[in-house]
Design a protein around this nucleic acid. Structure first.
Lengths: 348, 348
DNA sequence: CTGAAAGCGCTAACAT
DNA sequence: ATGTTAGCGCTTTCAG
């Protein structure tokens, strides 16, 4: 690997000139800049990011933590984060906690030590431990709110409201709701939303309990849903919905004839199955992009504009407050798993 | 962030002692080690990886390049790589090329500058450009072979052979084959394997051409498959198989009654759909793990054992040769999309 | 066993 | 406009 010295020697200039020519082209004469660039290209010189980072105090690397990369929900977020980070000039260190809160904290601390900022997707750990783990590093939470950390959250309540309205319009009067993991922040919000929407629409809602956000979680929930006497069901996510549909099929029940099913997330498999899933579509890419934008914004602010911040301190303090954060809008996508309830009541 | 100096001050020792106490515990007295550890914990000290990397010449970071994180095939590999890397003490920088060969090269060069080693999953670029992009950095290729680079490859030929045998045993005599992207290395290998297996089993194989390795690619291929008069089809991957099945259904054809379909990869959606996909299962996790192990091994070798290498040079040279690299075994998983052909011939 | 000092590659004062 | 130099945080000789 060529270093500044090599380039400097070849171009016949000092190392600082090399540095300038490459990162502040305006500060050197055109002639020397040219020569330096030539030399750099010839040597295939690439500044060592670690060295620069050490000097400048920034790594130009972002950290991303997800609970499960194999979950298409997080795969999409990861993809968006990675892509957006690159357009801002940042690389992305990815960590997968395997849905394990303990590992999660360790990973966050580990990441925090070597990145400029963190994107934490649906973290499972407690507010406090999360706060200490990020250790003052700029961080943006996805799908979760923690006092003192920036976050991007979708309109969970709106999603379930749309689902319930749709179901009611079809004629359903008794709807089962499958909850996600007990500790889930968005799950709790989702549940509150369902209650409210149930009251508003006059639809009776039966909560059948907590289940894993996976195919097998849906399989496990299926029988309780059937037993509940509901004619339709709201699941925690698409994977659950698929498992539920599968179990139903094995029991000889047909979707949507015998039971209407609504998913959540609109991951790509939702359209790959048959019947395609009616589900709440989340702007996954926008979530990932938004998180990075927020983070980079924060990073840029922390860097150059300390003076302006001081000036603004007196008057603009209120502006630093979370500006009544708008929720990212979600949208119910009606496909093949919802229909009118059987006229002769639930089950077959 | 606390530094060695802070810890040294608090513990009342020099910075070099701090460094030793933390990374070479055997070189300091128990008493001082204790004191240093206390101080470090109290200050929540974490060595700055960039600084260490600069000094030691290793970043303890691995780079992973994938064509598409949203493809469950690569999501699984990413997960495995990430997990295995961590057990070896490495962080992972992930880059997604979005199936674009041009971007891919840029990403590889970018990664190469800041990691100790690279895992390149199914890269799309040419052998030569790949070689220059890694720029001498240790690298392991997944699902591709390039002269001069280590690689881990699955038994493509074995996979298609198993598929074809299965189909023949069911009674199929004319089988369509959908190819993947034209430039794909494993696709080429797969095609050769199909030809050979066709000859060996006496099954007539009809190649219907190249299609994208996606759901829509499968949709696009479906009509050609039907027109080919085949009673069964081998797809390039599961996503294609799913799209194909979907298109067939829309045309009123049933799988497997009217046409048997065999996928490749056995990604998780293969079991989520109905009927579940008959497909060739690839040890995705083993692939990811194996790549990291190979890389770390190489890295360790490059570091400490230069002397031994010199000694070995004379006698063990042959051992440095790729030891007739064994292919990772794959396994046909028979599920719901294959059956005997209709007695009255293809189509309905 | 411990400390002083050099230096990894780079950038940012500080000279000139 | 360019060169000299200090130093980011760390590890690792080299002395003691």
């Amino acid at each position: 690997m060529a270093t500044v010295r090599d380039v400097a020697a070849l171009a016949g200039v000092s190392i600082s000139t090399v540095s300038r020519a490459l990162s502040a082209p305006g500060m050197v004469s055109d002639a020397t800049r040219e020569r330096v660039e030539q030399a750099a290209k010839k040597l295939d010189y690439r500044p060592n990011p670690a060295a620069r980072g050490l000097r400048v105090g920034r790594t130009t690397t972002l950290g991303l933590l997800v609970p499960d990369l194999e979950n298409p929900f997080f795969a999409s977020i990861t993809k968006a984060v990675q892509s957006r980070a690159r357009t801002h000039g940042y690389a992305v260190l990815v960590a997968d906690s395997d849905e394990d809160a303990g590992q999660e904290l360790e990973l966050v601390s580990m990441l925090a030590a070597q990145v400029d900022g963190l994107v934490l997707a649906s973290p499972r750990s407690s507010d406090l431990s999360l706060l200490t783990a990020v250790d003052g590093r700029p961080a943006v939470l996805l799908n979760r709110e923690v006092e003192g950390l920036a976050s991007l959250v979708i309109d969970n309540a709106g999603g379930v409201r749309q689902s319930l309205s749709h179901l009611k319009a079809l004629g359903h009067r008794r709807v089962a709701a499958v909850s996600g993991p007990a500790g889930s922040w968005s799950g709790a919000e989702r549940r509150r939303g369902i209650e409210t929407a149930g009251r508003e629409t006059g639809v009776e809602v039966v909560d059948v309990g907590h289940f894993r956000p996976t195919f097998s979680g849906g399989v496990a929930a299926a029988d309780l849903v059937v037993a509940s006497g509901a004619t339709a069901v709201l699941t925690y996510n698409d994977l659950q919905a698929l498992g539920l549909v599968d179990r139903l099929r094995h029991r000889g029940l047909q979707v949507p004839r015998d039971l209407s099913v609504v998913g959540f997330d609109d991951v790509s498999v939702a359209t790959l199955v048959s019947p395609a899933l009616t589900t709440v579509s989340i702007p996954l890419a926008a979530l990932g992009r938004g998180a990075v934008d927020r983070l980079v914004e924060q990073l840029d602010r922390d860097t150059g504009e300390s003076r302006e911040d001081d000036l603004a301190d007196l008057t603009d303090l209120a502006e630093d407050e979370p500006p009544a954060r708008p929720r990212l809008p979600v949208e119910l996508v009606v496909r093949g798993t919802t229909a009118e309830p059987r006229p002769d009541g639930p089950r077959a």
